[in-house]
Nucleic acid binder design. Structure first.
Lengths: 139, 139
DNA sequence: ATAAAATTTGCAACATAATTGCAAAATTGT
DNA sequence: ACAATTTTGCAATTATGTTGCAAATTTTAT
């Protein structure tokens, strides 16, 4: 198990360190996306705040995780599913944020639709976040 | 001019104060969305930081402005165009963020398309942000 | 296996951003 | 014009994010 994670780091030319293994592990076992604060809590005092910031940053640069925008100053991060496939896939899927449990989920199979922009605007990237009730909270 | 703004405040059961008039005025004359920091600079030292926070919060609660999500912990606010119309209109338009000048613009005429969610998910609200080059930066 | 080179970590200091309580000031309703 | 209500500004506090640097760890080359 942990072996796969090591490979992932190596493949991306990153040193294999404790913090990175731990944080990646958190992502693999998390029910949804994680914010910096979540990691800080879960990885309990073994990892320095600064290290978490830097780790998230490099993970993002390497395309291992991606950010999920939010409306309340609390960016979350999630694993890039297709990371293991050939290079940076950067697929554009929709994200879901539950209004009840506030879990943030990648809807990997729902792609962000194209929209027609007014003349002069040149799109490069799109993000879509849907709020509502997740499958678990709609009991 | 300022009279319209006063009316807007009254209509929403808010006291008409200097700070509010000033901040609303900023929004009406801004080229795009504004972040807390923008307001703090432009309203230059007359208005307390805390007042700005509270004003933005109440404006949002009253449906006068809305937030635009971002991927970098920097929420921006923009006027709700249809606010003056019958009650909270809450139309769902697409937002555009320029990668070059980083202006954030409401594309009031481009509506967020519907997407089909996996079973069990109940959508309430959708947000879509497109990054790229704005009409002015694509000279 | 070991030593040198390169990378990463943790600490400390700092900078910025956001929240809260409360008294003073301003606004509203009568 | 006055009392009641709301809003503001200040001070204090907490949370969030960044930077430089020396020590520790990991990698690479021998």
């Amino acid at each position: 198990m942990s072996e796969a994670i090591r490979e992932l780091l190596k493949k991306n030319h990153m040193s294999v360190t404790d913090s990175r293994l731990q944080i990646l592990d958190l992502f693999y076992h998390a029910p949804g996306a994680l914010a910096h604060a979540d990691i800080e809590k879960k990885a309990s005092d073994k990892i320095d705040r600064v290290t978490i910031y830097r780790t998230l940053q490099t993970f993002e640069e390497k395309g291992i995780i991606h950010t999920i925008p939010s409306s309340d100053n609390s960016v979350k991060y999630a694993l890039c599913k297709d990371q293991c496939a050939a290079g940076h896939h950067h697929d554009n899927h929709v994200h879901f944020v539950c209004d009840n449990c506030s879990k943030t989920i990648c809807l990997d199979d729902v792609l962000v639709p194209e929209v027609k922009l007014p003349g002069g605007f040149e799109p490069h990237q799109s993000n879509m976040v849907v709020n509502g009730l997740c499958n678990e909270c709609r009991s």
